[in-house]
Structure formats: structure tokens, C-alpha cells
């Protein structure tokens, strides 16, 4: 199982010299299994970058299969889909997963971005590939190739969002890119969901009030992520979803601070990293 970070930002893409090391694309994490199963977690602009790399595979010839989970409808999680070239190639099969209890139909989310006023594609029906929208439930699991996928809904300020768990040979990965806890240490429902993960990829804006998202002195926050990762006993924590104002240097400090905090809290075995665009971790 190979995890690649294609986009690591929240909110809005940030091109420029200040973001070249950690990356400026909005969020997308790629999972690839040795049997060829591919799954994208969210469709920020990072997905379009992955899409271009995939043109050399069966997906470039219209003979490929691809899976996508959209965790919620905010722009930074969907804006890359219309530039995901494999979706435009006839013959490709693309499954977009959503969860049926959240009123979040993945089809509605994507389709409402593609109306003629906003997109030259005018509708998803003009994409050449075959796109289907299987609904999952929060109680069950779904086989996706050699992976077992399960979803859970998470609290998230103005809308609902999902966290995703992937079990495969090699290990278990949990992705929780946008979570706003009322009180992280006592959030047993989610801590139980994270428990046993080899890798937890977690939001680093959990404690943020949305009114601050335009603030130029904004800083990402690691406290909740470290707390839930420590309590759930996960082996590795990757922070993700960086604010547009966080420069590469700011992020270096964030990592140091997060590691110090974890040690202070007694989570001595927790290995913390920052998601970095283009980096692949193999389990």
C-alpha cells in the first residue's frame, strides 16, 4: 500500500516560492495497492496533478479504473475534479464514494460545480468516462479492490464531513482531513475509529474558528491531532490541510512544536510528520 500526498493545503491553492517545499495544491491523497487498486481521498487541485501522472497508465488509454472519496463539499476538496484528465477519457471507470446518511450525495456535490455558468464541461455527463456513485453506510465496510473501505461522519463547523479508513495488506490508514472537535480528548467515537491505524492523516486546522480563515496571521494547530492520535495509539501521524498563510518555514516550526507537544503529553511512540506534496510512504 503506497500513500502519496498530491495536495496538502486547505481553503485555497497557494502557488509561489513560499510553498514549493510542502506544496500549494489543495487536498488530495493518493492510495495505490500492489494489485493496481487506486483511490483518491478528496479532489482538490492535487488530483489534477495526479491525473496528469496517470496518463502513462491504463487510465491514459481508457482502460483504467479509479476510485475517489469526497469527504465534503467545500471547494478545496472538489475543485480539482474537472481537471482530472482520466475522467475525460472514454472507457475509464470512475467510482465516487459518498455516505448515504450525510445528505452529501457525491454526485450532487460534483455536478453543482459543473453547471454551464461555472464550467465549460457544462455537466458531468459530458465527461467521457463512466462515473458511478456508490453509497456507503457508516456501519459497514466496502471492498475496493484489495482494500476494505469504511467511512464515518465527523463534526465539521458549517457542514458535515467524512473520515475514511482503509485496510489492506500492509496496514491500516485513516484519513480525517477536516474535523472540528467539541472536545478532542473525549471524542471516543472518533478515537475508536482511528484506533489501530498504522497511519493517521489528520487535519491541522481543527481548532480554528472559520471567521479566522482569512486572517493573515493565521497559524495551523496540532493540539487536537496529537491528542486524538496519541489516545488512539496510532503509530504515525501526518498533519495535513495547511492554511494558505503557512509558509514552508512556518510549517517547519509547526512540525517541531507538534513533536515537542507529543513528548510532553507522554506520547513517546507517536511518530509525527507533515504531509508533503510528492512524498510517497509505502506500508
Amino acid at each position: 500500500m503506497h500513500i502519496t500526498f498530491w495536495g496538502v493545503r486547505g481553503f485555497i491553492p497557494v502557488p509561489g516560492a513560499q510553498s514549493v517545499r510542502y506544496g500549494g495544491n489543495t487536498i488530495c491523497v493518493g492510495i495505490e495497492c500492489d494489485d493496481g487498486t487506486r483511490l483518491a481521498l478528496d479532489a482538490g487541485t492535487g488530483l489534477s496533478v495526479w491525473g496528469r501522472k496517470l496518463l502513462g497508465t491504463d487510465l491514459g488509454k481508457g482502460k483504467g479504473e479509479f476510485n475517489l472519496v469526497i469527504t465534503h463539499s467545500h471547494y478545496d476538496h472538489v475543485q480539482g475534479f474537472s481537471f482530472f484528465i482520466p475522467a475525460l477519457i472514454p472507457g475509464n471507470k470512475i467510482r465516487v464514494f459518498g455516505m448515504d446518511e450525510t445528505n452529501l450525495s457525491a454526485e450532487d456535490i460534483l455536478e453543482s460545480q459543473m453547471t454551464p455558468i461555472f464550467s465549460p464541461m457544462q455537466t458531468l455527463k459530458n465527461f467521457g468516462s463512466i462515473i458511478t456513485y456508490p453509497q456507503l453506510s457508516s456501519s459497514g465496510t466496502e471492498p475496493v479492490g484489495s482494500m476494505e473501505l469504511s467511512l464515518i461522519d465527523v463534526p465539521h463547523a458549517t457542514s458535515r464531513a467524512l473520515a475514511v479508513k482503509m485496510k489492506a495488506e500492509g496496514g491500516t490508514v485513516v484519513y480525517a482531513p477536516d474535523v472540528v472537535y467539541e472536545n478532542a480528548p473525549s471524542c471516543e467515537r472518533l478515537i475508536n475509529f482511528y484506533r489501530g491505524a498504522d497511519v493517521l492523516i489528520h487535519d491541522s486546522t481543527s481548532t480554528v474558528h472559520y471567521n479566522d480563515i482569512l486572517s493573515s496571521d493565521f497559524s495551523n494547530d496540532y493540539h487536537d491531532a496529537v491528542t486524538v492520535a496519541g489516545k488512539a495509539g496510532v503509530k504515525r501521524l501526518f498533519l495535513i490541510h495547511y492554511h494558505q498563510e503557512m509558509t514552508d518555514d512556518n510549517l517547519d516550526s509547526l512540525l517541531e512544536d507538534a513533536r515537542t507537544y507529543a513528548r510532553e503529553q507522554g506520547y513517546l511512540d507517536l511518530h509525527i510528520s507533515l504531509a508533503q506534496e510528492g512524498y510517497t510512504l509505502s506500508l
Partner: peptide, 18 residues
């Protein structure tokens, strides 16, 4: 100055990716 989609990264630093 960019069309279609923002393109962050080392390859667009000079002309810009916004």
C-alpha cells in the same frame, strides 16, 4: 496570470501559478 486551474509548485514560481 494562469488559465483553467491554479498550479502551485517549483515549476511555476517565476511566471506564477494563480
Amino acid at each position: 496570470v494562469r488559465g483553467s486551474i491554479p498550479v502551485p509548485g517549483p515549476h511555476t514560481v517565476r511566471y506564477g501559478g494563480n
